[in-house]
Design a protein around this nucleic acid. Structure first.
Lengths: 186, 186
DNA sequence: ACATCGAGAGAACGATCGTTCTCTGTCTGG
DNA sequence: CCAGACAGAGAACGATCGTTCTCTCGATGT
């Protein structure tokens, strides 16, 4: 872990702090202390805090997409791959520092003032919905089912965060399973 | 509208600004300008910004609960009352300044630092889930269905906000209807 | 060996925040 | 008619924010 680049340590520290405390609550000095990267270097990598925020969100977007992709593609059948999304959520919600979806949280905090953040969040959620739609299509189910499962997943993210429980992932999975049963493959 | 009390105008202005821009992004001076209530009077009504935030959230909690109650109780049959929740959401999402659920947004912004806000948000969401559970029980359906419909509702709130569309309310209603069909009354 | 470049540490800057204080005027009770 | 309590307007205060600047030092090329 010692030979990571300064930019990686910077993005790691910023990501962790933003997620734990919210974006506006974290000062550049706290990021500097946590990352060990000087303010000078930080500002030559990213010309402003907003640029740094966007870089953090874009990096997390890629990481989450890759994580879900790996998780779902490990299952054998198309229907199992659809339901695996909710197992992924359960694993995620169980992490002790889980505090909701960073994109939903960023939208909630900055959606009213930062169009760039809104665009990144929108792109992330659209990609998530598209991935689910591809899995649903591969399972031979109609496209409107994908939108419904997306709502269950996003709802589980916020409900689990607020309630401080991983149980919503199981409830969402059960609902998804019922909806799949109600829409048998053609 | 002219003879409203100062406290009402204060809470109205704070609620609107917090909802539009987020809580941390709104200064006390902006609230003063929008409400016409002096800082002196504001601080003698609420000894700090955090107290004001909590009062705003608690007032909105009551208003939302009453609104949903009125909306659902106007329907004739128990099953219609369950589905009316999603019609309520569709009306809400269609408002031009819709920017998500204020409680979800507040949790996202302050959940990491304000236990009082967390408690208010948790109470609000528990009350929402409890109301849905009562409607589901009256419709003769099993309790786990209520949790699933709660996830659909919360998911629709965030998805509609991020996508800037009221459509998720319709999708959630369709999913709810299917889940109700899959669980016929005893 | 020496000049030069770049980076780190952190002070400094201007803006803005939440909060308090000052000043001024306006009511009220006797 | 006057004394005194109170409220409004907004300046002032200390803290903190994002950002920049200064100073110092170590590495590097010739």
């Amino acid at each position: 872990m010692e030979h990571t680049t300064g930019e990686e340590r910077l993005l790691d520290a910023a990501d962790t702090l933003f997620y734990e405390r919210g974006i506006q609550a974290v000062g550049m000095d706290a990021i500097r202390t946590a990352s060990g990267v000087s303010l000078k270097r930080t500002y030559q990598l990213y010309p402003s805090k907003e640029h740094l925020v966007e870089a953090v969100l874009r990096r997390r977007d890629r990481a989450v997409r890759d994580g879900i992709e790996a998780y779902t593609s490990a299952r054998a059948t198309p229907t199992e791959r659809v339901l695996a999304v909710f197992d992924y959520l359960h694993d995620w919600f169980g992490q002790p520092d889980y505090r909701g979806c960073a994109f939903i949280n960023s939208f909630a905090e900055l959606g009213g003032s930062s169009p760039n953040v809104v665009e990144i969040v929108r792109t992330h959620k659209r990609a998530f919905a598209d991935h689910l739609a591809a899995l649903v299509a591969a399972a031979g189910r109609p496209p409107q089912l994908a939108a419904q499962l997306t709502l269950l997943a996003n709802g589980a993210m916020v409900t689990a965060a607020i309630a401080g429980s991983a149980e919503p992932a199981r409830e969402a999975r059960a609902a998804a399973s019922r909806l799949l049963d109600a829409e048998p493959p053609a």
